[in-house]
Write a protein that binds this DNA or RNA. Structure first.
Lengths: 106, 106
DNA sequence: TCCATATTTAGCTAATTATCGAAATATGGT
DNA sequence: ACCATATTTCGATAATTAGCTAAATATGGA
């Protein structure tokens, strides 16, 4: 949870997630959208991967990154629900530590 | 928007917001909940205020901080909507005025 | 095997951040 | 006027972060 919010604190990383929302993209494709060097982008990818907001798979020499929407969703909904944001106020107020990972349909 | 996410990146600040969800509290009251010095807490308050996530008003020698829920709400819902993360809109979203600081006598 | 390509790792610097103790400021009470 | 209290500001430091270039790694093709 903390790693997710840390990852979201940087606008470049938020934009990466936004791009990946449309479709999985390679590291190079993503890097082309930003005015920073590839090593810098690589570091951003590492932060997002560490937070499990994206995952990577290698096909030959390229690496394709994909958004793990469920992780983002869990963090945002979990945090929002603490404040009663966006959800009807049913039951006791959850805290950050008691908010369980949301069950996802298979 | 960026300032809000930067503010949310720190767990102490997230916890402050969570405490303020229940009721407005003074700087001292809030500081007592954490194992860091008062100057450090004061700096956290400044970051939250800069992001407009809280506001302050002074009564005598004490300063009471209050959550500005609508700002948090706008940021979270705004960002979530980019990803189509469904916050089921059942009825009006809660605002500051619907989450009173203190329960009034019926 | 050698070369080009995609990406990461290494090593560095500059900027930002979290933290502290000490001092300053503001207020209310005696 | 003086003192105690609540809080912030100041000044310093250590840790983290974002950024760079150069070098390393891995893969596929000629």
């Amino acid at each position: 949870m903390n790693k997710v919010f840390k990852a979201l604190a940087d606008p470049t990383r938020r934009r990466v997630l936004e791009l990946l929302r449309q479709r999985p993209m390679t590291a190079g494709e993503l890097s082309d959208q930003f005015a920073v060097s590839r090593p810098t982008m690589s570091a951003h990818f590492a932060v997002l991967r560490e937070a499990e907001l994206i995952d990577a798979h290698k096909q030959g020499v390229t690496i394709t990154y994909r958004l793990k929407l469920s992780v983002l969703e869990d963090a945002l909904l979990g945090f929002s629900s603490i404040f009663g944001i966006g959800v009807p106020d049913t039951g006791p107020a959850p805290t950050m530590s008691t908010v369980p990972a949301k069950e996802r349909a298979p």
